[in-house]
């Protein structure tokens, strides 16, 4: 397999790998390293790629596992990465500040969710995977994914309403 062939396979989902890694590891740099690691692992096993039924799902599972390993070693080192970099969105100026602030709130709320729910929110609401794919990637069953997703969405909404009506009610 040549480099271009490999890139053609990998390019469509490399951003998804990166975003999932970032969802779990929070820091952009850590997520970049993780993505690089995952892609290199794929490249080194490029002869086996044809055997994988779904390279994308496989890579996502690999990313999840890699990030969990990272988090475990981070926990044992007692290090915590605090990071926040969010891009701007172009809506009218007055609203933009407000919205940006609430968007940051969403980020914070998601960060507080348990890892599993965070991953599911990432895969479903941001990357638009269907339930079967998510179930395969995370090695869970379909209904468990739905339940976790529902819980995560409800938590986000509840917390958002709280901050939204803060000081009003």
């Amino acid at each position: 397999m040549t480099q271009t062939e490999f890139l053609n396979i990998v390019l469509p989902f490399k951003d998804k790998v990166f975003r999932l890694a970032k969802r779990l590891l929070v820091s952009t740099e850590e997520a970049e390293d993780a993505t690089q690691e995952v892609l290199l692992k794929l490249w080194n096993n490029k002869n086996k790629i044809a055997e994988y039924r779904n390279v994308e799902a496989f890579s996502m599972t690999m990313t999840k596992n890699y990030c969990f390993d990272k988090l475990k070693s981070k926990q044992s080192q007692n290090l915590k990465i605090v990071h926040s970099n969010y891009e701007e969105k172009s809506t009218p100026l007055q609203k933009q500040v407000e919205l940006n602030d609430s968007v940051n709130w969403v980020a914070k709320i998601i960060e507080e969710l348990p890892e599993q729910q965070r991953m599911i929110i990432q895969l479903r609401d941001i990357e638009d995977y269907d339930f079967d794919e998510i179930a395969k990637m995370l090695d869970m069953n379909n209904t468990a994914v739905r339940v976790a997703l529902s819980r995560a969405r409800k938590t986000i909404r509840e917390k958002l309403t709280k901050t939204h009506s803060y000081g009003v009610k």
Binding site: R19, Y86, E87, K89, L99, S102, V103, W105, V106, A107, I110, D125, I126, E127, I156, R157, L160
Partner: peptide, 10 residues
Amino acid sequence: PMFAYFLVNK
């Protein structure tokens, strides 16, 4: 903001 966040993150 929730949906805006999803969009931005994508």
